[in-house]
Design a protein around this nucleic acid. Structure first.
Length: 755
RNA sequence: GCCCGGGUGGCGGAACGGUAGACGCAAUCGACUUAAAAUCGAUGGCCAUGACGGCAAUUGUGGGUUCGACUCCCACCCCGGGCACCA
């Protein structure tokens, strides 16, 4: 300890972080189109309280990539905004009995400190909270814009409701059918809600996905998640007419087994469902389904609800006509549509067929289904068809901590959107939610307003936007320079910055972000057609995408309950930020689940310690030689050392050249795990070189020293993206220029970086 | 139930059609130390030796393709994650 050659990460990291702040190392360069530039988009963290090891993984990957690109001379925008609205923040505030605004501010401060201690090179001047009015006015603007375009609409949805607490509950607030707070039974209610019509752009998202794949910048895991969200099912559809003339288009993925269709299932959300539920009994059961009475039952084919409409459709291939049943089981598999049940081709249908057999014969006793519909017409022609599971979703929540929806309800004019000039509708900040009631709706000063059309009394919408909706645009204001942040949205949309930075070159986020990315792709297409993002011709906000998997521990997801949580602060405290960052990169390739193991940290720490001490002791020795005025290294006998190891130096040069090549390739492909391993291997080679030279001669000659330090310099450069603090200190120790933004990548000159 | 990911030494994991177990952790022995920690070195199934070496098993299970399979194909078992108000 204390020796100049020993590795003291805390001192090094404090020094470097101060230097970075001083020179604004992570500041976004001003817009200059002629320079290569890119926007790397990390995920927007929830203001949940603490940075966890999953964040560390995510940002270590993104930061390594950002530093790599900067080191190669690219202009980089790398920053994020906190996703500050939402239930977790509200629950955190309830827990502490403070207003959510206070809680998220506290979280943001604390998490920013943690992230800075880890040395991530975000442009902090551009960081923001989505709960800031200057920011959430964007959500309100987006809401109104999409509403005008018919992409936001009002519908009904079902939610859990607690009669005792007089409030709606999220699924995570319902424990075994009881309210989390008062432990009384919960019931499902229907209430009006706002929907986002993503269905309008789902087919285009599908079409554009192949282009993403062809670009090579979309990782396989990311593509797979987009396909999963899309839920594309290929098959055929047939238009059938019932005896009374009611038509229904029925789909099946089993084109070849159309003749074996035995029944028709129709989703309760099917647009024409009412025509099929005309009998009072059927209607009643459909209502039960819709209000959720049956919906929370098992997804199991043996238990999923089935409602017999007591009607039939002719079979597509002739023969006995098919009973028509309503079942929510359709949605999860094919979306809100109607499908054939083909027991011989489909396992689920086989199970359903047995149940239907009993159901139908019971309900239709005396009316054998086989004679009711001999097909008099020509066979209907099946045609190719596609169905998507992705469907419109609810974007409003009965919560007091969220973006207020810019709608007022006027007795005369009904739901009236506010003019955009009146934005933002401010969220009152003096609310301290307790988990009961609806604080926003109870606040008369917020609710009471006037109708923008007639000036008469009106009430504000008291639902707020789901924070998923905020996330649809969080990547846009990230491109806005801080000084323009408060400008009008028209001004901001006219800035060259958006055109400059968008589309983002790469999203680096957890694989659970599939839905966000999908919906961001949808909204971009909508804004392209509406106008503001017309410059994104393909409607794609992200040119590339890397999804990393999560960090688990002891084979399980981390949870306080299991006691297997890994605390990044404790690791940083013990080993320093460089070690922790290196360890999470080293432990597994991004796309793989990282099963936490201390051995990776120990390995990373030992590696950094060795690199540091090896370099520093060699430097100290070389300086001592120079100080002694020796022009050449000397052996124990005082005889000058002859450089006899030319082939070893050559070999070292080859190794480093090969290593640089390989690591550069790894970094371009965001294979940080492989890059780190290759850096470690290179260090082994460097040590090996010295060892071999010393096996031949008593000490290193001048040319050997030169080769050694050249290799160590390269090593420092290659370490830059992973262990930036130590890399830069080594770089300085080796006599390089400290004024550079950071260690340049091998082969890149400082001029290129400073440009 | 459905969808996705995964099963390799005591442990984390390499290799992803060509010497399985790289690189580590833990362990044991040794060096340094008054001692401990840290660090460094050695060892890694069995047999044998001063040393070279020899022998056997082996990547969840069972099949298959192949000159050759952890790797590709089929079936199964087990584990983890997700499944529409966390988003």
């Amino acid at each position: 300890m204390g020796s100049p050659t020993s590795y003291d990460p805390h001192a090094i990291e404090a020094r470097r972080q101060a230097a970075w702040r001083e020179r604004g190392a992570a500041r976004t360069p001003a817009v200059q189109d002629d320079l290569p530039h890119l926007y790397i988009k990390p995920s927007a963290p929830f203001t949940s309280g603490n940075v966890h090891i999953g964040h560390v993984r995510s940002y270590s990957i993104g930061d390594a990539y950002a530093r790599f690109r900067r080191a190669r001379g690219d202009q980089v925008l790398f920053n994020f905004g906190f996703d500050a609205f939402g239930l977790p923040a509200e629950l955190g505030a309830i827990d502490r009995g403070i207003p959510p605004s206070e809680w998220v501010a506290r979280c943001a401060t604390h998490m920013t400190g943690q992230l800075q201690r880890l040395g991530f090179s975000f442009d902090w001047e551009r960081t923001f909270l989505s709960s800031d009015p200057v920011m959430y006015r964007w959500s309100q603007w987006l809401f109104l814009t999409l509403l005008e375009a018919g992409l936001v609409y009002r519908g009904t949805g079902t939610v859990d409701w607690c009669d005792t607490c007089q409030t709606t509950l999220a699924t995570i607030q319902v424990e075994d059918g009881l309210c989390w707070r008062c432990h009384n039974p919960v019931r499902l209610i229907e209430r009006p809600t706002w929907y986002l019509r993503i269905s309008a752009y789902v087919p285009e998202n599908d079409r554009r996905l192949q282009e993403r794949a062809d670009s090579g910048k979309w990782d396989e895991v990311a593509l797979a998640s987009q396909r999963f969200v899309l839920g594309r099912v290929d098959g055929v559809e047939v238009e059938l007419s019932a005896q009374d003339g009611t038509k229904l288009t029925v789909f099946t993925p089993h084109a070849e087994a159309l003749e074996q269709a035995r029944f028709v299932l129709i989703s309760p959300k099917h647009p024409e469902i009412d025509a099929w539920a005309d009998e009072p009994q059927v209607r009643e059961r459909l209502e039960e389904l819709r209000s959720g009475g049956l919906e929370r039952s098992s997804r199991d084919a043996a238990k999923i609800p089935l409602v017999d409409t007591r009607r039939t459709l002719p079979a597509p291939a002739g023969g006995a006509s098919l009973p028509v049943l309503i079942s929510p089981g359709v949605d999860g598999r094919f979306g809100a549509t109607a499908v054939f049940g083909v027991p011989e081709a489909d396992r689920t249908d086989e199970v359903l067929a047995e149940r239907i057999g009993a159901l139908v014969s019971e309900a239709r006793e005396g009316v054998p289904p086989s004679i009711s519909g001999e097909q008099p017409h020509a066979k209907p022609e099946p045609r190719q068809a596609v169905r998507y599971k992705a469907e419109d979703f609810s974007i409003s929540r009965q919560r007091s901590w969220g973006t207020p929806i810019p709608i007022v309800y006027c007795e005369e004019h009904g739901a009236v959107p506010l003019p955009k000039e009146q934005l933002p509708v401010a969220l009152p900040l003096d609310i301290t939610p307790t988990g009961t009631g609806n604080p926003l709706a109870e606040l008369r000063s917020f609710v009471e307003t006037t109708c923008p059309l007639c000036g008469g009394p009106a009430e504000r919408e008291t639902d707020t936007l789901d924070c998923h909706f905020d996330a649809l645009w969080l990547w846009v204001p990230a491109c806005v320079p801080p000084e323009s942040r408060e400008d009008s949205l028209e001004q901001i949309l006219a800035l060259p910055d958006l055109r400059h930075w968008l589309p983002s070159e790469r999203v680096v986020a957890g694989s659970d972000s599939g839905n966000f990315v999908f919906d961001q792709r949808i909204v971009t297409k909508a804004l392209r057609d509406i106008g503001p993002l017309a410059f994104l011709e393909d409607g794609e906000p992200f040119a590339g995408c890397l999804f990393h998997e999560m960090v688990i521990s002891e084979g399980r997801k981390m949870s306080k309950h299991l006691g297997n949580v890994v605390d990044p602060d404790a690791l940083v405290e013990r080993y320093g930020a460089d070690t922790v960052r290196l360890a999470v990169l080293y432990a597994a390739r991004p796309q793989k689940t990282l099963n936490w193991s201390d051995s990776a940290v120990l390995r990373a720490h030992r590696f950094l310690t060795q690199v540091w001490e090896f370099t520093q002791t060699r430097l100290a020795a070389a300086q001592q030689e120079q100080g002694a005025g020796e022009s050449q290294a000397a052996g124990a006998d005082g005889e000058p050392i002859r450089d006899t190891s030319e082939h070893l130096r050559l070999k070292l040069a080859q190794w480093t050249e090969k290593g640089v090549e390989k690591i550069t390739e790894d970094m371009e492909g965001l294979e940080m795990h492989s890059a780190v391993r290759n850096v470690m291997r290179l260090f082994d080679r460097i040590k090996d070189f010295e060892k071999r030279v010393l096996a031949r001669q008593p000490a290193l000659g001048a040319a050997d020293d030169e080769a050694l330090f050249a290799a160590l310099s390269l090593l420092a450069q290659l370490l830059g993206p992973f262990a930036p603090h130590m890399a830069e200190e080594l770089w300085i120790s080796l006599g390089k220029d400290e004024s550079a933004v950071q260690t340049p990548w091998p082969g890149v000159s400082l001029q290129e970086i400073a440009a």
